[in-house]
Simulated scan of single mutants.
Amino acid sequence: MHSRVVGIPDLDGTEPVAVVIDVMRAFTTAAWAFHRGADKIVLAADAGGALAIKEGNPGWLALKDGAPAGGFDLVNSPGLIQEADLTGRTVIQKTTAGTVGALAVVEARLALCASFVVAGATARVLADAGADPVTFVATGEDGRAAEDLACAEYLDRILAGEPRDPLPYLHRARTSPAADDLRRGRRRGAHPTDVDLCLEVDRFDFAMKVGLEEGMAVLRPLRTRPDAVSDRAR
């Protein structure tokens, strides 16, 4: 399999298969939202766009990163989302990097959003689709975020059929500047458990596929084969 890892600025919209990675925290939060019952997640480019979508769709919930803000119902924190009842709800998600990266590749033949919590399922979808080549998009820090690069390399090793002990990759993520910022309270709208929740490999047995629906970028869970799924996901 051929692959490359790029940042958002390097995308040109021609990638046939893309995996958009935001470990801390957009696509860990999204996975938890699905686990808590969300039906779909609509991705927004900015806060104004998110609120405009919400205004046109009563009952939808808006989520953003950073501190709580007027008009938004949820914040981009897996530690907080894991307590929410989202059964049957539609969530509108806007974040600084993750949703921006997903919107950049939404028209790809296959576009997935990923983090460590859905790594195994993401790799299975790619393998089942015979995806080659694959573009991994490390969204944080214009492609330099240590946790996103570690997750991309971990996925690449799985697809290559090589030994894939997750611990070295998790160590890189755990000691990243983003993890340090979260632990030290430098990011608003965070929960003390966020870092640990972002590092639970294969916590869930679904991947997350993004595509256009009625002109909106919509993220949905994509169930995969149950074999080799961590017991924690059951």
Rank of each mutant, 00 (worst) to 15 (best):
A84Q: 15
A233V: 04
M24W: 02
A145D: 06
R144C: 00
V75H: 06
D85C: 03
P226D: 11
G143A: 00
V91I: 14
A62F: 06
V201H: 07
G130P: 01
P78S: 04
F206H: 04
T96F: 05
P177L: 00
V106M: 11
A111V: 06
A18I: 11
D196R: 04
R232S: 08
L61N: 09
D156V: 05
T175K: 09
V218Q: 07
T96R: 14
E15M: 03
L80T: 14
Y154G: 06
R36N: 06
A190E: 14
P9F: 07
R174D: 09
D73M: 13
K94I: 03
A44G: 06
S230C: 01
L222Q: 11
I53W: 14
P9H: 08
S3T: 06
T90R: 07
R4D: 00
R232L: 15
R188A: 15
R36A: 01
R172K: 15
L197V: 02
V118H: 05
A31R: 02
A111S: 10
Q93S: 11
V23L: 00
R183D: 06
G37E: 03
D22E: 04
L11Q: 08
A47Q: 13
V23F: 07
G13V: 15
I53P: 02
A123I: 08
V105H: 11
R188H: 13
D156L: 12
V218P: 08
P177K: 00
G79W: 02
F72G: 05
P221R: 13
G7L: 00
L212V: 13
A123Q: 07
R164E: 05
A104Y: 03
A179S: 15
L112V: 05
M1E: 02
L86K: 08
F206T: 01
R174P: 04
A190M: 12
L74H: 13
